[in-house]
């Protein structure tokens, strides 16, 4: 049973806000292993290509990565000969407008929407990526775990220079 929530439960809300802030912090500090450990074993990191894309499998995505592909991306970011990471990307995320969109207390599942901005500095200069996050979170003994992190860039169908780090 999934019940949409109109108000927010303060206790859950604070924890969730802290969790999203921590996640962003880990990315900005390049603590990628700790970040990757926030996912459930089957957890997916998804950046759709289309506006309101429903399907990551029967359509192209900017990114659709499982634990393996995230780890390979992390391995590469650390490699000495990751040419396009010289200088390496530096990022600052801001997460705001956090809204609990749905929750299922029986399953310990919460769907959280938010807005984000990621400023990134790399070899070609400074750029901003912006959009909406949708976190599908599961409450486990270790706290929240990400079943899916969905990143809807407002310019997902636009023209990009390479995106190397996690948004």
């Amino acid at each position: 049973m999934t019940t949409p929530v109109s108000g927010t439960c303060p206790f859950v809300y604070d924890e969730i806000r802290d969790f999203l802030n921590l996640e962003a912090r880990l990315l900005d500090q390049r603590r990628f292993d700790e970040w990757n450990a926030l996912f459930t074993p089957e957890g997916m990191y998804w950046v759709p290509l289309a506006d309101q894309q429903v399907d990551p499998v029967n359509h192209l995505s900017l990114v659709y990565e499982d634990a393996m592909m995230r780890e390979v991306r992390i391995n590469r970011l650390r490699h000495d000969r990751a040419w396009s990471q010289q200088p390496r990307s530096r990022t600052a995320h801001s997460v705001s407008c956090i809204v609990i969109e749905a929750r299922d207390p029986d399953e310990g599942r919460v769907v959280v929407g938010s807005s984000f901005m990621m400023n990134e500095w790399r070899s070609f200069g400074l750029r901003t990526l912006a959009g909406l996050y949708t976190h599908d979170l599961l409450l486990s003994e270790d706290g929240y775990r990400i079943a899916q992190k969905r990143v809807d860039l407002i310019d997902s169908e636009g023209v990009f220079e390479p995106i190397e780090v996690f948004i």
């Binding site: 659709y64 990751a82 390479p162 995106i163 190397e164």
Partner: peptide, 29 residues
């Protein structure tokens, strides 16, 4: 089969490809 084709595209040809990014970098260099 199309799903596998999409996987190939996602890995090799997406703007987020971990392969293509180094190509684009050396072109600019």
């Amino acid at each position: 089969l199309l799903q596998r084709t999409f996987i190939y595209s996602n890995v090799v040809n997406s703007p987020s490809s971990i392969v293509m990014t180094d190509d684009v970098h050396v072109y600019a260099e």
